[in-house]
Design a protein around this nucleic acid. Structure first.
Length: 220
DNA sequence: TACCAGGAGAAAA
DNA sequence: TTTTCTCATGGT
C-alpha cells in the first residue's frame, strides 16, 4: 500500500510539536521491554506497570526465573495486567525461546528479517508484539502498527480500505524511509494522540491534527 | 453501569 | 478462508 510521505511527515510534526518526545519504551533493559510488550497486549500500560513492579519485587524479572517459577505464582505476580492465565503461557513461551536462542547477545547478531521470523514463531507473539520488540528492544527500523495507527491514518485519509498488517507497515516504512528514531517516536505519539483525543473526544476539538485530519474537511 | 485498554490465538461458521 | 469468541484487571 502506497502512502503519501508528505502527509505522513506533516502529521508526525504536528503531534511532536503538540506532545513533545514521549521517551519510549519505558523499561530498564531490552528484556524488560520485551516482557512489557507481551503484558501490554490489549491492556492499559498502568496495569502493566503494576505487574512489572511485582516481578521486580519478587526478583523474578529474568527469563530463567519466569520459566522456572510455578505458573500459579507467576500468574499472581502478573495479575494486574489482566488475562493473566494466557499471559503466563505467553511469557513462558517467549522466555523459553529467548533462552534457547542464546538471549540478547545472540539475538542481536541476527538480521531483522530472521529475528522477526523467530519472534513470530512464538505462540503468543503476534506482529504488533514482535515489532514492539524489534523497534524498542533491538532498535531495528520497523514500524509498529496498532489499532490507533489504523484509526488515525484512516481519519487522515492516508489509508484506503483495510490493508493487512504487513501491507500497512511496509507502506509506512517505505514512505518514511528506514529511521529507527522516527519510527520510535511516531508510534509513541500515535498512542499518545489516540488516548488523548481520538477515543475520549471523537469530534477532535482542539486536536493537534486540525487541518490535517479528514474530519476537519481539508487535507495537508 | 458500561466501556475500553499500547492483541493474539482458538473456535466456529 | 473469514468472522467471532475468549481472555481479565483497573480506570473513567
Amino acid at each position: 500500500m502506497r502512502l503519501h510521505a508528505g502527509r505522513l511527515r506533516a502529521a508526525y510534526r504536528r503531534m511532536l510539536a503538540a506532545y513533545g518526545p514521549q521517551h519510549w519504551w519505558p523499561g530498564d533493559t531490552p528484556f524488560e521491554i520485551m516482557v512489557g510488550a507481551v503484558l501490554t497486549q490489549n491492556t492499559a500500560w498502568t496495569n502493566v506497570e503494576r505487574a512489572i513492579a511485582n516481578l521486580k519485587a519478587a526478583d523474578a524479572l529474568s527469563p530463567e526465573t519466569i520459566v522456572s517459577l510455578p505458573p500459579d505464582h507467576l500468574a499472581q505476580l502478573i495479575r494486574p495486567s489482566g488475562y493473566f492465565n494466557i499471559k503466563v503461557r505467553r511469557l513462558r513461551n517467549f522466555c523459553r525461546w529467548y533462552v534457547a536462542q542464546g538471549k540478547i547477545r545472540a539475538l542481536r547478531r541476527l538480521d531483522t528479517a530472521t529475528l522477526r521470523h523467530g519472534l513470530l514463531s512464538i505462540n503468543g507473539v503476534g506482529p504488533e508484539t514482535a515489532d514492539d520488540m524489534l523497534l524498542y528492544a533491538f532498535s531495528r527500523p520497523v514500524f509498529v502498527v496498532d489499532a490507533y495507527t489504523r484509526r488515525i491514518f484512516s481519519r487522515l485519509g492516508l489509508m484506503d480500505g483495510e490493508p493487512s498488517y504487513d501491507g500497512l507497515r511496509l507502506g509506512i516504512e517505505t514512505a518514511l524511509g528506514p529511521d529507527t528514531d522516527v519510527f520510535n517516536e511516531y508510534h509513541a505519539l500515535i498512542v499518545r494522540h489516540g488516548k488523548d483525543v481520538c477515543r475520549t473526544r471523537p469530534q477532535c476539538e482542539g486536536c493537534c491534527l486540525r487541518g490535517v485530519c479528514r474530519w476537519h474537511g481539508e487535507g495537508v
